[in-house]
Design a binder for these strands. Structure first.
Lengths: 228, 228
DNA sequence: CAGACACTTCGGGCTGGCCCGAAAGGTCGC
DNA sequence: GCGACCTTTCGGGCCAGCCCGAAGTGTCTG
Protein backbone atom coordinates (compact mmCIF):
# COMPACT_ATOMS: atom_id res chain seq x y z
CA UNK A 1 0.00 0.00 0.00
CA UNK A 2 3.02 2.29 0.41
CA UNK A 3 3.64 2.74 -3.28
CA UNK A 4 3.93 0.34 -6.14
CA UNK A 5 6.83 -1.39 -4.42
CA UNK A 6 7.11 -5.01 -5.44
CA UNK A 7 7.52 -6.39 -1.95
CA UNK A 8 6.18 -5.38 1.41
CA UNK A 9 8.12 -5.74 4.62
CA UNK A 10 6.46 -8.98 5.63
CA UNK A 11 7.09 -10.69 2.33
CA UNK A 12 10.72 -9.65 2.39
CA UNK A 13 11.10 -10.75 6.00
CA UNK A 14 9.50 -14.10 5.29
CA UNK A 15 11.83 -14.64 2.38
CA UNK A 16 14.77 -13.62 4.54
CA UNK A 17 13.79 -15.93 7.37
CA UNK A 18 13.76 -18.84 4.94
CA UNK A 19 17.41 -18.12 4.20
CA UNK A 20 18.30 -17.23 7.76
CA UNK A 21 18.98 -20.71 9.03
CA UNK A 22 22.34 -22.33 8.18
CA UNK A 23 20.64 -25.69 7.71
CA UNK A 24 18.22 -24.32 5.14
CA UNK A 25 20.94 -22.25 3.50
CA UNK A 26 23.07 -25.37 3.12
CA UNK A 27 20.22 -27.22 1.46
CA UNK A 28 19.55 -24.40 -0.97
CA UNK A 29 23.21 -24.09 -1.83
CA UNK A 30 23.41 -27.83 -2.39
CA UNK A 31 20.66 -27.45 -4.99
CA UNK A 32 22.10 -24.46 -6.86
CA UNK A 33 23.55 -26.74 -9.51
CA UNK A 34 20.00 -27.52 -10.61
CA UNK A 35 19.94 -31.12 -9.39
CA UNK A 36 17.10 -32.84 -7.55
CA UNK A 37 18.06 -34.55 -4.32
CA UNK A 38 16.22 -36.78 -1.85
CA UNK A 39 15.45 -35.47 1.63
CA UNK A 40 17.94 -37.74 3.37
CA UNK A 41 20.81 -36.55 1.27
CA UNK A 42 19.91 -32.93 1.98
CA UNK A 43 19.74 -33.70 5.69
CA UNK A 44 23.24 -35.11 5.51
CA UNK A 45 24.47 -32.11 3.51
CA UNK A 46 23.08 -29.80 6.17
CA UNK A 47 24.41 -31.89 9.06
CA UNK A 48 21.05 -32.44 10.77
CA UNK A 49 18.74 -35.38 11.45
CA UNK A 50 16.08 -36.34 8.91
CA UNK A 51 13.38 -35.17 11.31
CA UNK A 52 14.74 -31.65 11.44
CA UNK A 53 15.45 -31.60 7.73
CA UNK A 54 11.87 -32.56 6.99
CA UNK A 55 10.59 -29.50 8.82
CA UNK A 56 13.01 -27.23 7.00
CA UNK A 57 12.14 -28.68 3.62
CA UNK A 58 8.47 -28.25 4.34
CA UNK A 59 9.03 -24.60 5.12
CA UNK A 60 11.05 -24.00 1.98
CA UNK A 61 8.34 -25.73 -0.02
CA UNK A 62 5.61 -23.59 1.52
CA UNK A 63 7.73 -20.53 0.85
CA UNK A 64 7.87 -21.36 -2.82
CA UNK A 65 11.62 -21.78 -2.95
CA UNK A 66 11.62 -25.52 -3.58
CA UNK A 67 9.65 -27.90 -5.75
CA UNK A 68 8.90 -31.50 -4.82
CA UNK A 69 8.79 -34.61 -6.94
CA UNK A 70 7.58 -37.81 -5.29
CA UNK A 71 9.02 -41.01 -6.64
CA UNK A 72 8.14 -44.12 -4.72
CA UNK A 73 9.44 -43.86 -1.20
CA UNK A 74 11.88 -41.12 -2.20
CA UNK A 75 11.04 -37.44 -2.25
CA UNK A 76 13.21 -35.40 -4.53
CA UNK A 77 13.56 -31.70 -3.86
CA UNK A 78 14.90 -29.10 -6.28
CA UNK A 79 14.88 -25.31 -6.60
CA UNK A 80 11.40 -24.23 -7.57
CA UNK A 81 12.39 -21.94 -10.31
CA UNK A 82 15.20 -20.43 -12.26
CA UNK A 83 14.37 -17.15 -10.55
CA UNK A 84 15.26 -18.72 -7.22
CA UNK A 85 18.67 -19.63 -8.58
CA UNK A 86 19.08 -16.11 -9.92
CA UNK A 87 18.16 -14.74 -6.50
CA UNK A 88 20.80 -16.86 -4.79
CA UNK A 89 23.40 -15.65 -7.29
CA UNK A 90 22.46 -12.04 -6.68
CA UNK A 91 22.75 -12.53 -2.94
CA UNK A 92 26.26 -13.79 -3.51
CA UNK A 93 26.95 -10.77 -5.66
CA UNK A 94 25.76 -8.35 -2.99
CA UNK A 95 27.86 -10.08 -0.38
CA UNK A 96 30.95 -10.27 -2.58
CA UNK A 97 34.05 -8.41 -1.38
CA UNK A 98 35.40 -5.41 -3.28
CA UNK A 99 34.71 -5.87 -7.00
CA UNK A 100 38.34 -5.81 -8.10
CA UNK A 101 39.63 -8.36 -5.62
CA UNK A 102 36.66 -10.72 -5.91
CA UNK A 103 37.37 -12.34 -9.28
CA UNK A 104 40.93 -13.09 -8.23
CA UNK A 105 39.63 -15.19 -5.35
CA UNK A 106 37.63 -17.87 -7.12
CA UNK A 107 39.57 -20.59 -8.81
CA UNK A 108 40.45 -19.97 -12.44
CA UNK A 109 38.41 -22.81 -13.88
CA UNK A 110 35.26 -21.64 -12.18
CA UNK A 111 35.78 -18.11 -13.42
CA UNK A 112 36.27 -19.29 -16.96
CA UNK A 113 33.20 -21.49 -17.38
CA UNK A 114 30.59 -22.82 -15.03
CA UNK A 115 26.92 -23.60 -14.90
CA UNK A 116 24.54 -21.06 -13.43
CA UNK A 117 21.49 -23.17 -12.69
CA UNK A 118 21.52 -24.91 -16.06
CA UNK A 119 23.06 -22.43 -18.43
CA UNK A 120 26.60 -21.37 -19.19
CA UNK A 121 28.18 -18.63 -17.07
CA UNK A 122 31.65 -17.31 -16.35
CA UNK A 123 33.98 -15.57 -18.80
CA UNK A 124 32.98 -17.95 -21.56
CA UNK A 125 29.27 -17.42 -20.98
CA UNK A 126 29.70 -13.66 -20.94
CA UNK A 127 31.83 -13.67 -24.09
CA UNK A 128 29.36 -15.93 -25.87
CA UNK A 129 26.48 -13.65 -24.99
CA UNK A 130 28.46 -10.57 -26.05
CA UNK A 131 29.17 -12.16 -29.42
CA UNK A 132 25.52 -12.97 -30.00
CA UNK A 133 24.62 -9.35 -29.24
CA UNK A 134 27.46 -7.90 -31.28
CA UNK A 135 26.63 -9.96 -34.37
CA UNK A 136 22.99 -8.96 -33.99
CA UNK A 137 21.95 -12.57 -33.61
CA UNK A 138 19.67 -11.83 -30.68
CA UNK A 139 16.38 -10.05 -31.04
CA UNK A 140 15.02 -8.18 -28.07
CA UNK A 141 11.31 -8.54 -27.61
CA UNK A 142 8.96 -7.88 -24.76
CA UNK A 143 8.86 -11.56 -23.87
CA UNK A 144 12.62 -11.88 -23.83
CA UNK A 145 15.59 -12.40 -26.09
CA UNK A 146 15.14 -14.52 -29.19
CA UNK A 147 17.66 -16.01 -31.55
CA UNK A 148 17.41 -14.56 -35.07
CA UNK A 149 17.48 -16.95 -38.10
CA UNK A 150 20.96 -15.74 -39.04
CA UNK A 151 22.17 -16.71 -35.59
CA UNK A 152 20.57 -20.13 -35.71
CA UNK A 153 22.13 -20.74 -39.08
CA UNK A 154 25.58 -19.68 -37.94
CA UNK A 155 25.45 -21.82 -34.79
CA UNK A 156 24.10 -24.88 -36.61
CA UNK A 157 26.76 -24.63 -39.30
CA UNK A 158 29.35 -24.52 -36.53
CA UNK A 159 28.13 -27.90 -35.42
CA UNK A 160 25.68 -27.04 -32.64
CA UNK A 161 22.52 -29.18 -32.74
CA UNK A 162 19.66 -26.71 -32.19
CA UNK A 163 16.04 -27.82 -32.02
CA UNK A 164 13.25 -25.24 -32.15
CA UNK A 165 15.70 -22.54 -31.28
CA UNK A 166 13.51 -19.75 -32.56
CA UNK A 167 10.72 -20.50 -30.06
CA UNK A 168 12.71 -20.29 -26.86
CA UNK A 169 13.18 -17.04 -24.98
CA UNK A 170 16.31 -16.08 -23.12
CA UNK A 171 16.82 -13.60 -20.35
CA UNK A 172 19.83 -11.70 -19.18
CA UNK A 173 21.49 -13.05 -16.08
CA UNK A 174 24.08 -11.16 -14.10
CA UNK A 175 27.40 -12.92 -13.65
CA UNK A 176 28.92 -12.89 -10.18
CA UNK A 177 32.52 -13.15 -11.26
CA UNK A 178 32.38 -11.07 -14.43
CA UNK A 179 29.72 -8.65 -13.23
CA UNK A 180 28.35 -8.66 -16.75
CA UNK A 181 25.44 -10.19 -18.52
CA UNK A 182 25.20 -13.69 -19.87
CA UNK A 183 22.33 -15.60 -21.41
CA UNK A 184 19.91 -17.50 -19.19
CA UNK A 185 16.32 -18.60 -19.53
CA UNK A 186 15.14 -21.52 -21.66
CA UNK A 187 17.21 -20.31 -24.61
CA UNK A 188 20.37 -20.19 -22.52
CA UNK A 189 19.66 -23.66 -21.15
CA UNK A 190 19.04 -25.08 -24.61
CA UNK A 191 22.20 -23.56 -26.09
CA UNK A 192 24.25 -24.87 -23.18
CA UNK A 193 22.88 -28.39 -23.47
CA UNK A 194 23.57 -28.27 -27.21
CA UNK A 195 27.18 -27.48 -26.36
CA UNK A 196 27.29 -30.53 -24.11
CA UNK A 197 25.85 -32.68 -26.90
CA UNK A 198 28.30 -31.31 -29.45
CA UNK A 199 31.18 -32.03 -27.10
CA UNK A 200 32.15 -28.38 -26.75
CA UNK A 201 31.73 -28.57 -22.98
CA UNK A 202 31.77 -31.25 -20.38
CA UNK A 203 30.77 -31.32 -16.74
CA UNK A 204 33.34 -31.94 -14.05
CA UNK A 205 32.54 -34.58 -11.44
CA UNK A 206 32.24 -32.03 -8.65
CA UNK A 207 31.27 -28.41 -8.39
CA UNK A 208 29.81 -26.12 -10.98
CA UNK A 209 32.91 -25.59 -13.10
CA UNK A 210 32.73 -26.68 -16.73
CA UNK A 211 35.55 -27.81 -18.99
CA UNK A 212 35.52 -26.52 -22.58
CA UNK A 213 37.11 -28.91 -25.07
CA UNK A 214 39.83 -27.84 -27.48
CA UNK A 215 37.45 -28.39 -30.37
CA UNK A 216 34.75 -26.37 -28.64
CA UNK A 217 37.08 -23.46 -28.01
CA UNK A 218 38.22 -23.54 -31.63
CA UNK A 219 34.68 -23.49 -32.97
CA UNK A 220 33.63 -20.76 -30.53
CA UNK A 221 36.67 -18.76 -31.61
CA UNK A 222 35.59 -19.06 -35.22
CA UNK A 223 32.24 -17.59 -34.22
CA UNK A 224 34.04 -14.67 -32.65
CA UNK A 225 33.95 -15.77 -29.01
CA UNK A 226 37.35 -15.04 -27.52
CA UNK A 227 38.32 -15.78 -23.93
CA UNK A 228 41.57 -14.79 -22.24
CA UNK B 1 35.69 -25.29 1.07
CA UNK B 2 32.93 -27.27 -0.68
CA UNK B 3 33.71 -26.07 -4.13
CA UNK B 4 34.26 -22.65 -5.61
CA UNK B 5 30.79 -21.60 -4.49
CA UNK B 6 30.60 -17.90 -3.83
CA UNK B 7 28.83 -18.17 -0.50
CA UNK B 8 28.88 -20.68 2.31
CA UNK B 9 25.86 -21.59 4.36
CA UNK B 10 26.77 -19.30 7.22
CA UNK B 11 27.24 -16.26 5.04
CA UNK B 12 23.95 -16.88 3.30
CA UNK B 13 22.19 -17.46 6.60
CA UNK B 14 23.63 -14.28 8.07
CA UNK B 15 22.48 -12.32 5.06
CA UNK B 16 19.06 -13.91 5.33
CA UNK B 17 18.74 -13.17 9.03
CA UNK B 18 19.40 -9.51 8.31
CA UNK B 19 16.35 -9.50 6.06
CA UNK B 20 14.30 -11.80 8.26
CA UNK B 21 12.88 -9.17 10.58
CA UNK B 22 9.93 -7.07 9.36
CA UNK B 23 11.38 -4.01 11.08
CA UNK B 24 14.69 -4.32 9.25
CA UNK B 25 12.95 -5.20 6.00
CA UNK B 26 10.85 -2.06 6.27
CA UNK B 27 13.95 0.08 6.78
CA UNK B 28 15.69 -1.44 3.79
CA UNK B 29 12.62 -1.01 1.60
CA UNK B 30 12.33 2.61 2.72
CA UNK B 31 15.85 3.15 1.42
CA UNK B 32 15.47 1.43 -1.94
CA UNK B 33 14.89 4.76 -3.64
CA UNK B 34 18.50 5.65 -2.91
CA UNK B 35 17.79 8.31 -0.30
CA UNK B 36 19.59 8.78 3.01
CA UNK B 37 17.39 8.97 6.08
CA UNK B 38 18.01 9.71 9.77
CA UNK B 39 17.57 6.95 12.33
CA UNK B 40 14.44 8.43 13.83
CA UNK B 41 12.63 8.55 10.54
CA UNK B 42 13.52 4.93 9.84
CA UNK B 43 12.26 3.95 13.29
CA UNK B 44 8.95 5.59 12.48
CA UNK B 45 8.80 3.92 9.07
CA UNK B 46 9.32 0.55 10.74
CA UNK B 47 6.87 1.28 13.54
CA UNK B 48 9.29 0.70 16.41
CA UNK B 49 10.94 2.83 19.10
CA UNK B 50 14.23 4.58 18.39
CA UNK B 51 15.97 2.26 20.84
CA UNK B 52 14.99 -0.83 18.91
CA UNK B 53 15.69 0.82 15.59
CA UNK B 54 19.18 1.68 16.70
CA UNK B 55 19.99 -1.95 17.33
CA UNK B 56 18.61 -2.99 13.96
CA UNK B 57 20.52 -0.28 12.13
CA UNK B 58 23.69 -1.29 13.88
CA UNK B 59 23.20 -4.86 12.72
CA UNK B 60 22.52 -3.83 9.13
CA UNK B 61 25.61 -1.64 9.24
CA UNK B 62 27.77 -4.47 10.55
CA UNK B 63 26.33 -6.73 7.90
CA UNK B 64 27.47 -4.34 5.18
CA UNK B 65 23.98 -3.61 3.89
CA UNK B 66 23.91 0.02 5.04
CA UNK B 67 26.30 2.93 5.01
CA UNK B 68 26.33 5.67 7.62
CA UNK B 69 26.91 9.37 7.24
CA UNK B 70 27.17 11.41 10.45
CA UNK B 71 26.03 14.99 10.21
CA UNK B 72 25.84 16.85 13.49
CA UNK B 73 23.38 15.18 15.80
CA UNK B 74 21.73 13.38 12.90
CA UNK B 75 22.89 10.04 11.57
CA UNK B 76 21.89 9.40 8.01
CA UNK B 77 21.63 5.81 6.80
CA UNK B 78 21.51 4.69 3.19
CA UNK B 79 21.98 1.45 1.28
CA UNK B 80 25.67 0.60 1.27
CA UNK B 81 25.95 -0.14 -2.36
CA UNK B 82 24.20 -0.40 -5.64
CA UNK B 83 24.63 -4.14 -5.36
CA UNK B 84 22.44 -4.14 -2.26
CA UNK B 85 19.69 -2.42 -4.24
CA UNK B 86 20.11 -4.94 -7.03
CA UNK B 87 19.86 -7.75 -4.50
CA UNK B 88 16.59 -6.39 -3.13
CA UNK B 89 15.20 -6.15 -6.66
CA UNK B 90 16.15 -9.72 -7.40
CA UNK B 91 14.49 -10.91 -4.21
CA UNK B 92 11.34 -9.20 -5.42
CA UNK B 93 11.76 -10.91 -8.76
CA UNK B 94 12.10 -14.33 -7.17
CA UNK B 95 9.02 -13.76 -5.08
CA UNK B 96 6.96 -12.32 -7.91
CA UNK B 97 3.84 -14.22 -8.93
CA UNK B 98 3.57 -15.87 -12.35
CA UNK B 99 5.56 -13.86 -14.90
CA UNK B 100 2.64 -13.06 -17.17
CA UNK B 101 0.29 -11.81 -14.46
CA UNK B 102 2.91 -9.89 -12.54
CA UNK B 103 3.38 -6.87 -14.82
CA UNK B 104 -0.37 -6.32 -14.95
CA UNK B 105 -0.41 -5.82 -11.19
CA UNK B 106 1.81 -2.79 -10.74
CA UNK B 107 0.40 0.55 -11.70
CA UNK B 108 0.98 1.68 -15.26
CA UNK B 109 3.14 4.65 -14.42
CA UNK B 110 5.53 2.55 -12.39
CA UNK B 111 5.84 0.01 -15.17
CA UNK B 112 6.58 2.70 -17.69
CA UNK B 113 9.39 4.55 -15.93
CA UNK B 114 10.80 4.43 -12.44
CA UNK B 115 14.09 4.73 -10.63
CA UNK B 116 15.96 1.59 -9.70
CA UNK B 117 18.33 2.83 -7.02
CA UNK B 118 19.38 5.91 -8.99
CA UNK B 119 19.06 4.88 -12.58
CA UNK B 120 16.16 4.62 -14.99
CA UNK B 121 14.15 1.39 -15.09
CA UNK B 122 10.80 0.22 -16.39
CA UNK B 123 9.70 -0.02 -20.02
CA UNK B 124 11.45 3.23 -20.83
CA UNK B 125 14.70 2.14 -19.21
CA UNK B 126 14.62 -1.17 -21.00
CA UNK B 127 13.84 0.45 -24.36
CA UNK B 128 16.58 3.01 -23.87
CA UNK B 129 19.13 0.32 -23.11
CA UNK B 130 17.96 -1.76 -26.08
CA UNK B 131 18.42 1.22 -28.38
CA UNK B 132 21.94 1.84 -27.13
CA UNK B 133 22.79 -1.78 -27.80
CA UNK B 134 21.07 -1.91 -31.16
CA UNK B 135 22.82 1.22 -32.44
CA UNK B 136 26.11 -0.18 -31.21
CA UNK B 137 26.64 2.77 -28.92
CA UNK B 138 27.70 0.58 -26.02
CA UNK B 139 31.04 -1.15 -25.90
CA UNK B 140 31.33 -4.29 -23.82
CA UNK B 141 34.57 -4.52 -21.90
CA UNK B 142 35.70 -6.62 -19.00
CA UNK B 143 35.16 -3.74 -16.60
CA UNK B 144 31.63 -3.14 -17.85
CA UNK B 145 29.69 -1.36 -20.54
CA UNK B 146 31.10 1.89 -21.94
CA UNK B 147 29.53 4.52 -24.18
CA UNK B 148 31.21 4.75 -27.58
CA UNK B 149 32.08 8.22 -28.97
CA UNK B 150 29.30 7.92 -31.56
CA UNK B 151 26.81 7.35 -28.75
CA UNK B 152 28.05 10.29 -26.72
CA UNK B 153 27.81 12.50 -29.77
CA UNK B 154 24.29 11.38 -30.58
CA UNK B 155 23.05 11.89 -27.02
CA UNK B 156 24.71 15.26 -26.63
CA UNK B 157 23.27 16.51 -29.91
CA UNK B 158 19.85 15.43 -28.66
CA UNK B 159 20.27 17.84 -25.79
CA UNK B 160 21.57 15.58 -23.03
CA UNK B 161 24.36 17.21 -20.98
CA UNK B 162 26.98 14.50 -20.57
CA UNK B 163 30.18 15.07 -18.64
CA UNK B 164 33.02 12.57 -18.84
CA UNK B 165 30.67 9.99 -20.24
CA UNK B 166 33.43 7.87 -21.71
CA UNK B 167 34.98 7.16 -18.31
CA UNK B 168 31.96 5.73 -16.53
CA UNK B 169 31.12 2.06 -16.65
CA UNK B 170 27.63 0.64 -16.74
CA UNK B 171 26.34 -2.74 -15.81
CA UNK B 172 23.28 -4.66 -16.80
CA UNK B 173 20.47 -4.66 -14.29
CA UNK B 174 17.49 -6.98 -14.48
CA UNK B 175 14.11 -5.30 -14.57
CA UNK B 176 11.42 -6.73 -12.31
CA UNK B 177 8.46 -5.66 -14.42
CA UNK B 178 9.97 -6.15 -17.86
CA UNK B 179 12.20 -9.09 -16.96
CA UNK B 180 14.76 -7.64 -19.31
CA UNK B 181 17.98 -5.75 -19.00
CA UNK B 182 18.38 -2.04 -18.46
CA UNK B 183 21.44 0.06 -17.80
CA UNK B 184 22.69 0.54 -14.25
CA UNK B 185 26.04 1.32 -12.70
CA UNK B 186 27.67 4.74 -12.67
CA UNK B 187 26.96 5.19 -16.38
CA UNK B 188 23.27 4.46 -15.91
CA UNK B 189 23.11 6.86 -12.97
CA UNK B 190 24.86 9.61 -14.92
CA UNK B 191 22.62 9.22 -17.97
CA UNK B 192 19.54 9.29 -15.78
CA UNK B 193 20.58 12.41 -13.93
CA UNK B 194 21.38 14.04 -17.27
CA UNK B 195 17.79 13.32 -18.27
CA UNK B 196 16.60 15.04 -15.13
CA UNK B 197 18.76 18.05 -15.90
CA UNK B 198 17.57 18.20 -19.49
CA UNK B 199 13.97 18.07 -18.34
CA UNK B 200 13.26 14.76 -20.04
CA UNK B 201 12.22 13.20 -16.76
CA UNK B 202 10.97 14.44 -13.43
CA UNK B 203 10.53 12.76 -10.09
CA UNK B 204 7.10 12.35 -8.59
CA UNK B 205 6.61 13.47 -4.98
CA UNK B 206 6.10 9.92 -3.76
CA UNK B 207 7.22 6.51 -4.80
CA UNK B 208 9.73 5.49 -7.39
CA UNK B 209 7.69 6.25 -10.49
CA UNK B 210 9.14 8.83 -12.89
CA UNK B 211 7.27 11.11 -15.27
CA UNK B 212 8.75 11.57 -18.73
CA UNK B 213 8.00 14.96 -20.30
CA UNK B 214 6.50 15.36 -23.77
CA UNK B 215 9.74 16.91 -24.97
CA UNK B 216 11.75 14.07 -23.46
CA UNK B 217 9.61 11.43 -25.13
CA UNK B 218 9.92 13.23 -28.44
CA UNK B 219 13.69 13.44 -28.23
CA UNK B 220 13.97 9.83 -27.09
CA UNK B 221 11.75 8.82 -29.99
CA UNK B 222 14.08 10.59 -32.38
CA UNK B 223 16.92 8.52 -30.98
CA UNK B 224 14.92 5.40 -31.68
CA UNK B 225 13.55 4.74 -28.21
CA UNK B 226 9.91 3.79 -28.58
CA UNK B 227 7.58 2.93 -25.71
CA UNK B 228 3.98 1.73 -26.08
C1' DC C 1 2.89 -60.72 4.92
C1' DA C 2 7.08 -59.35 7.32
C1' DG C 3 10.85 -56.53 7.42
C1' DA C 4 13.77 -52.83 5.72
C1' DC C 5 13.84 -48.32 4.25
C1' DA C 6 12.69 -43.23 3.43
C1' DC C 7 10.46 -39.81 5.28
C1' DT C 8 7.14 -37.32 8.31
C1' DT C 9 4.74 -36.07 12.62
C1' DC C 10 4.73 -35.38 17.58
C1' DG C 11 6.31 -33.79 22.18
C1' DG C 12 9.33 -31.30 24.91
C1' DG C 13 13.81 -28.83 26.14
C1' DC C 14 16.47 -24.95 25.16
C1' DT C 15 18.50 -20.70 23.24
C1' DG C 16 18.70 -16.60 20.47
C1' DG C 17 16.86 -12.50 19.51
C1' DC C 18 13.06 -8.91 19.57
C1' DC C 19 10.91 -5.51 22.26
C1' DC C 20 10.48 -1.74 25.41
C1' DG C 21 11.48 1.91 29.22
C1' DA C 22 15.00 4.28 31.47
C1' DA C 23 19.18 6.48 31.40
C1' DA C 24 23.49 8.12 29.22
C1' DG C 25 26.20 10.35 25.06
C1' DG C 26 26.74 13.89 21.90
C1' DT C 27 25.29 18.07 19.36
C1' DC C 28 22.91 22.33 18.53
C1' DG C 29 20.65 26.93 19.80
C1' DC C 30 20.39 30.52 22.99
C1' DG D 1 26.30 26.62 30.49
C1' DC D 2 21.48 25.02 30.11
C1' DG D 3 17.78 22.84 27.98
C1' DA D 4 16.03 20.59 23.81
C1' DC D 5 16.86 17.16 20.65
C1' DC D 6 18.59 12.89 18.25
C1' DT D 7 20.57 8.70 19.02
C1' DT D 8 22.72 4.99 21.51
C1' DT D 9 23.46 1.71 25.50
C1' DC D 10 21.70 -1.09 29.25
C1' DG D 11 18.65 -4.42 31.74
C1' DG D 12 15.18 -7.60 31.78
C1' DG D 13 10.71 -9.88 30.06
C1' DC D 14 9.03 -12.70 26.59
C1' DC D 15 8.19 -15.63 22.53
C1' DA D 16 9.44 -17.88 18.16
C1' DG D 17 11.76 -21.34 16.34
C1' DC D 18 15.62 -24.87 16.25
C1' DC D 19 16.95 -29.32 17.77
C1' DC D 20 16.47 -34.15 18.81
C1' DG D 21 14.45 -38.98 19.90
C1' DA D 22 10.58 -41.78 19.42
C1' DA D 23 6.71 -43.20 17.13
C1' DG D 24 3.79 -43.31 12.88
C1' DT D 25 2.89 -43.56 7.63
C1' DG D 26 3.76 -45.08 3.25
C1' DT D 27 6.59 -47.91 -0.18
C1' DC D 28 9.44 -51.39 -1.98
C1' DT D 29 11.54 -56.26 -1.58
C1' DG D 30 11.57 -61.04 -0.87
Amino acid sequence: MNDGAPLNRYQLAELGSLLAEPARAAMLLALTDGTSRPAGELAQAAGITPATASAHLHRLLDGGLLALQVQGRHRYYRLADERVAAMLESLALARAPAPHTMPARGDAQLRRARCCYRHLAGALGVAFCATLLQRDWLQTETRGLFLRPAGIEALVSSGLPLADASQLYGRSCLDWTERRMHLGGPLGVMLTSAMFEAGWLRRLPQGRALQPSADGLRRLGMLGVLVD
